[in-house]
Structures are given as C-alpha cells and as structure tokens.
Design a protein around this nucleic acid. Structure first.
Length: 282
DNA sequence: GCCCAGGTGCGGC
DNA sequence: GCCGCACATGGG
C-alpha cells in the first residue's frame, strides 16, 4: 500500500485507508482474516477484485523459475499482491512519477485531489471532467506533465471507454499501441506504459523496468542482462525504447507469463538498501 | 548548493 | 535510430 505501486493509501489506527471506485475503504489483516470497512456502493466483489484475490498466487509462484534467487524473493515477499487500480488514476500517477521520488508523487497527487474537491477531507481522486475544471496550484506547476494530464483527461471525457480497448489485447499489442501507436498518450513511455498495463489493465506479463528494477536485475539476475554486453547498460543513461523492449522480453522469457508479479519483489529487494526506502518500514 | 528520485519528449547528429 | 538535454518537486 505504501511502497509505490498505488498512492495515497495511509495506515491509521491499524487500518489501511484509501479509495476504491471513488469511495472510502479501510482494511486490515487480523490473523488469517482480511477485514474491510466500507459503505454500500462498495461491494465485497470490488474489494476482492481490487486485491486480486481471484488470482491463485501459490499457483503463480509454482510457475516461476526454480532458481535460488527467485525462491528467496518469493519467500521474502509472500503476500505482496498486484492491486487492480483505476486506469485513469493509475495513468495520472505514473505520468507524474517520471523521475520523481515516491514521497513527492504522493504529495503531488494529494494536492491535485484537494484542488478538485477542497470541501472533502480526505479528497477522492478527480474524474477526468473534474480534473479539467481545476487550474494548476501555481504557475507552471508540474511543467509539461500538467499539459499531458489535461490531454489524457480530454481523451477520456470524450471517450470514456478508451482503456476498454486494451482489455482484450495481448500484452505486447497493448504496449505497442500505448507507446508507439495512434493511441499513444503523451507522457506515457515504455516504463509508464508497463505500469499502467500491470497495475490497471490485467497484463501480468508486463515487466516495468525502472532504475531500481534494472539495478535488481544486474545484481540478482546478471544472466538475463549478459547478452547486452559487459557494461553495455549504464545506470545513469536512460534506455532506448529498443533496449527497453529487449530487456523486458528477456525477463518475460525467463520469468514467464506472470513476470510482472515477481517484478514487484525485485523492485522492493533492490530498494531495500536505499536509506530513503528504509523509512517505509518494509 | 548539489545529488537523487518508479522517465519522457524533443532536437541534433 | 541513438545521444544529450531540459524538465518540476522535495528530501538528504
């Protein structure tokens, strides 16, 4: 809930509190029991869907490779799940996320929500229509990103089912459409596209590669990267679309159909040495 | 002040 | 196609 997959959830009095389909939800785990508190528009099916309780993670783990590193990661992060987010909110979050710290992303998203609905506290995430009504908190706030968010909001208000078109596509078709096709969204590059596909469009074979995952692959799975040559991939330089797609494909070949689920473990394991991350308490 | 954060679009070769 | 750069924000 607070490691950067989804944003704006807070732990308070033992409950994780956040938003689901525009309504307030609180949840916690007591022993083996998952409890949630929510009002009528929220159904149990929604909670089940949000937490991907329909997925059999034990079966998914069984399908992952048997090497020692993978086994260790599975053990260490057992219980870590992919959350099914709203595609619009997810896209906004990750368009903003580019080259930002997770803390900043949270702060910015909270600010946008408050700007849209200042009377509600805490504020839900704005609909595309309501996003278009707000003006940036100050001049040039977020720079070009603000413009990208407005473009996306415009697309969605004229075509609310924009993201539905991606549901029946294979991962690769969806990714190509988002990154290169006519459906390209400004601000959505190779990595953000993977996050949107994995976290909101059911593409569990998406494998987002950010600086942490790249470091993690280098450290934990050097063989996956070896075909790119020694020192062929420099951390400080951004990957070209071609190289990105190639590494992503290698990961998919090695980890299989649910590589996206293991990706989250690699992300966390890679970040665990980072001091700013230690404050998260994971 | 300087470096680093869940990268991307753009212009110059 | 690849490379280098600007780009906002906020914490260490």
């Amino acid at each position: 809930m607070d490691c950067g997959q989804i944003f704006r959830w807070k732990k308070d009095e033992g409950f994780w509190k956040g938003w689901l389909n525009g309504s307030r939800v609180e949840m916690r785990i007591e022993g083996d029991i998952l409890q949630y508190r929510a009002k009528p528009p929220i159904t149990e099916d929604m909670v089940v869907n949000f937490l991907t309780l329909d997925l059999d993670y034990m079966k998914i783990y069984d399908g992952l490779p048997r090497d020692e590193t993978t086994s260790t990661l599975i053990q260490r992060y057992r219980g870590l799940r992919i959350l099914r987010q709203n595609p619009w909110e997810c896209s906004v979050s990750y368009i903003i996320s580019a080259s930002m710290s997770i803390r900043s992303i949270n702060a910015i998203l909270n600010r946008i929500c408050w700007a849209a609905y200042p009377k509600q506290e805490p504020s839900p995430f704005p609909t595309p229509q309501d996003f278009l009504k707000i003006s940036p908190p100050r001049a040039n706030y977020l720079g070009k990103k603000w413009f990208y968010l407005a473009r996306l909001a415009n697309i969605l208000s004229s075509n609310p089912s924009f993201f539905k078109e991606f549901e029946n596509l294979s991962y690769l078709d969806a990714w190509n459409k988002l990154v290169k096709g006519n459906e390209h969204i400004m601000g959505v590059g190779p990595k953000v596209a993977d996050c949107v596909l994995l976290f909101s469009l059911n593409k569990f074979d998406a494998f987002p590669i950010d600086r942490w995952v790249l470091r993690g692959l280098k450290k934990f799975y050097p063989r996956i990267l070896e075909k790119f040559g020694k020192g062929g991939i420099h951390e400080s330089k951004t990957l070209t679309v071609h190289t990105y797609a190639s590494i992503s494909e290698s990961a998919r070949m090695y980890f299989g159909r649910y590589c996206g689920i293991l990706q989250e473990s690699i992300f966390l394991a890679s970040r665990i040495n980072d001091t700013s991350f230690l404050q998260c308490g994971l």
